[in-house]
Nucleic acid binder design. Structure first.
Lengths: 121, 121
DNA sequence: ACTAGCGTTGACGCAGGCGTCAACGTTTAG
DNA sequence: CTAAACGTTGACGCCTGCGTCAACGCTAGT
């Protein structure tokens, strides 16, 4: 299939696909006229990238997953590189959640105090 | 005091202070030579801005707090505009935390599954 | 007089994942 | 033959809170 169809199948844009290629995540064969040509395995790679991006991974983080899939694994997560990224992400998430909950506490107290002083019954 | 000292007192940079002024958050008197001149009340405004930015508010969100302080209130949070921002922020935080926790669940399951398939013994 | 250190404005750079337009070639339907 | 609809590369725009450099003026100390 060509880039337009791949984009549609993967729920993204042709621009994004060229961007992934620029960054070495996917590679395309070329037909004689210079058009990119893809197959089902490429679709799987792009879908892996997309689902990871959607939950907050950045492009670099998706690389080990993509390489894992290209090495023939059934899942992009079952390679050491991917597992390491998952571990770091889990720690990042925990830190991020903790920070947000702390901020939430501050905001909640500020709000309670401010409304109390605004409407003192 | 001049801009350099204000920056130091508030724990920020002169560049940031000029940026806040550009966006109408703080205003400076000028001495005859064109230098900006600040006093203690300006320091309070900048500290309010800084503390809000640090916990994740954006510049626009700080505006009602700054105006509240300038209107003579003891706290920047005790005006309707500030309270509304605090309320929206609280909702934002709740949504953000929920999303992160959902992602955390996904990542944790992925990680468990991947490590299980990597070391099945 | 000269230098260091403060001030002034204006403008570019950055991160990230693309959107979007330009200017052009290819394919396909009528 | 022509136009629509696809493809190609290159490059600028976006967003946000500044960092950083340029090129200049003012002031204080020696």
């Amino acid at each position: 299939m060509r880039i337009g169809e791949l984009a549609e199948q993967a729920g993204t844009s042709t621009r994004a696909l060229r961007y992934y290629e620029q960054h070495g995540l996917i590679a395309a064969r070329r037909t004689t006229n210079g058009y990119r040509e893809y197959d089902e395995s490429d679709l799987r790679l792009v879908r892996e990238i997309r689902s990871l991006l959607e939950i907050g991974f950045n492009l670099e983080d998706t690389r080990p997953f993509v390489e894992c899939l290209r090495s023939g694994r059934a899942s992009g997560a079952e390679c050491p590189g991917s597992i390491e990224v998952l571990g770091r992400k889990l720690a990042d998430l925990d830190g991020c959640i903790a920070r947000l909950q702390a901020v939430r506490g501050v905001v909640e107290r500020e709000l309670a105090q401010a409304t109390a002083e605004e409407e003192p019954a």
